[in-house]
Nucleic acid binder design. Structure first.
Lengths: 226, 226
DNA sequence: TAGATTGTTAATCGATTAACAATC
DNA sequence: TAGATTGTTAATCGATTAACAATC
């Protein structure tokens, strides 16, 4: 499918294109130019064309891009036309939030099971899925052809469980634990570090405050100079 | 505090430095060189030194960096030495997951309230916090000196609520809804688009598969040539 | 055909890495 | 003092933007 290595920056943008194309499709827009899309998404048209051309020519000179076609192709590129069997390790609020997020199934992600260590949770049923203990984890992964796991457990348990997952043949880990997991080269880890996201927000709101204060100061200085 | 505009790439890395420094501190490490830290974090020592020097010289030639000092300074830079009053809009699983995440309070984020539209949730108590309806949102924000809001509601309601938050004086939105919010220049939005994160994982696991298949193919070709 | 807009090459910009003098 | 390691400048690398010929 791909010729050269696609850069991380491009990959990050792909799902956003997909989202906007989906919205366009829903609102009945049939075709769109890179220029029009660039305005809506607040990126440059050049970037859109460059990004898309990493995967092939989906447009037509003088016409633009067919929304439905491009949407489908993007879905294929993102791999959400295929089925991904997923388990969730950690059945706390976060794990349950993921299990309850209905749209996932629409995009080919099938939640095959939920696991937890906490005996009080084991046996409970969330969205028709029974919460299991981690004892039979390996067997369950093999029996149910599971390729992906969401890790919504505390950071202390995460590395150990990750190793078990990898040994059982899991190919992708969606990691919500606040650790950097070490996995073999052929296993993919996507981190969602919420605490880091919140710190970035904190940083940005503080530096915005500083900026505004400085602007205020320099205004006052200007006044005094006059 | 800052002289020039700090790049987005640097800001993204800051919380990770903070996390590693915290771990070093916990394990009793007193000082660390950029080289040693670079090995642990799998980044270049050059990058660490460049990143830190955006904010000033925290190290000492021939010695390295004092872990405790650097940790504290990083906390200050990230703004987590101050108190941030936060409300959560959307008391579903995701909102509750955030409310239950204890570490936040340790880092200066005080959850001042939770809100929801669903009448069945209103009145419930999560972690000692009563879930309220959104009618008195504006008044509550003013009365409780709230600067930040986490938005864990469906995308259809998010833009409307975001506007109300901004008008009520909120300065930072932690946005979990799958929309790009439009806010004034002095308001900061940090997006956590989980569905996009999952699509990136999907993309990466698929392209890894393709890569491995190709390697397999070219191996077989080599065999046949022999 | 003329106008529009892509695909793609070239130019620019910024971020990362390398190197090393300063200095603890 | 000698060795180590920073802070910082210079070199490299990659990503973004601009430009335009190709073409629908």
């Amino acid at each position: 499918m791909e010729e050269r290595e696609i850069s991380k920056a491009v990959i990050t943008r792909l799902p956003r294109y997909y989202r906007y194309l989906g919205e366009l499709l829903e609102s009945g827009v049939e075709r769109i130019s890179s220029n029009e899309l660039s305005t809506r998404m607040s990126v440059t048209a050049s970037q859109i064309r460059q990004d898309l051309n990493n995967f092939g020519g989906f447009g037509q000179q003088g016409y633009g891009y067919n929304v439905k076609y491009l949407y489908t192709e993007m879905g294929r590129i993102l791999g959400i036309d295929r089925q991904h069997n997923l388990i969730i390790i950690g059945a706390g609020n976060l794990g349950q939030a993921i299990a309850n997020y209905a749209n996932f199934e629409k995009r080919g992600f099938i939640i095959k099971g939920m696991f937890d260590i906490n005996p009080r949770l084991i046996g409970l049923v969330v969205r028709g899925i029974e919460i299991r203990g981690v004892d039979d984890l390996e067997q369950y992964i093999k029996d149910n052809d599971v390729q992906m796991a969401a890790l919504t457990i505390p950071k202390t348990k995460a590395p150990e469980i990750a190793e078990r997952l990898v040994n059982a043949g899991i190919k992708a880990i969606w990691n919500f634990a606040h650790v950097d997991l070490t996995v073999p080269d052929d296993v993919v880890v996507e981190n969602v570090h919420l605490s880091e996201s919140l710190m970035r927000l904190s940083y940005r709101v503080c530096s915005m405050q500083d900026k505004l204060e400085k602007e205020q100061e320099s205004k006052q200085e200007n006044k005094q100079e006059k």
